[in-house]
Amino acid sequence: MTGRVIVITSGKGGVGKTTTSANIGTALAKSGYKVVLIDTDLGLRNLDLLLGLENRIVYTIVDVIEERCKLKQALVKDKKNPNLQLLAAAQTRDKTAVNAEQLKEICDILKEDNDFVLVDCPAGIEQGFQNAVAGASEAIVVTTPEMSAIRDADRIIGLLNTKEEITSVKLLLNRVRPNLIKSNEMMSVDDVVGILEIPLVGIIPEDTGIITSTNKGEPIVNDENALAGKAYRNVAERILGEEVPFLDLDEPKGFMAKLRNAISKLKVKV
């Protein structure tokens, strides 16, 4: 089989690339697909932490490239789901320890016996980005509804469009706060999509559960009740080609809020 290689990128740091990689990877694996997550953030690895695998890492991607181990030896299986494996970044080296060709080769080998290879890209547009993108044919650009993140996302989209191998670039809007959008203090989903003009693959609401899930090393998709978890599961389904409606984040909870919402929609002129 030939799996799909998807790079998860953003340009700006701190918008949720690694959280997104961990959650989409976990969700796809839960649906029964074989998934490998590659952390390409050499020197600043974190994907192992989010998956709770930090104590199981023996070999890293640099060990594979420098032939200190075989590729299979470096893959760490997830605690809960053997369908999910992690190829960790080296923490003691920097981005120059790997080049684009080497990463492409690894992706090419991994996609032979996996359904999905998800590449977690480092922030920035330099060597690390070029490496991460090298083996991918699809890209998910993560951004938040903030100016600086959107500007960087636009830059990344421009760079991705110059890569012939990348055939699909989709947007994941993270950390959306419906109450701020409602009071016109935050750019809405439509605003962001209108500016960046690429198709949307997911809208993830800001969720305090992300903090606790990170603390525990357990992706939030495993929490059936969390809204962000549901949103990430929807993203995975969309990647699999299903048409899933986006969560209606505007729907207020509680009776009074619903009443207020219903009445505010009645625009009757007296």
Binding site: M147, I150, R151, I181, N184, E185, M186, M187, S188, D191, I195
Partner: peptide, 11 residues
């Protein structure tokens, strides 16, 4: 819609 539209236009 002050701060949102300011952000959108600047961006």
């Amino acid at each position: 819609d002050a701060s949102k539209s300011v952000a959108t236009n600047r961006l």
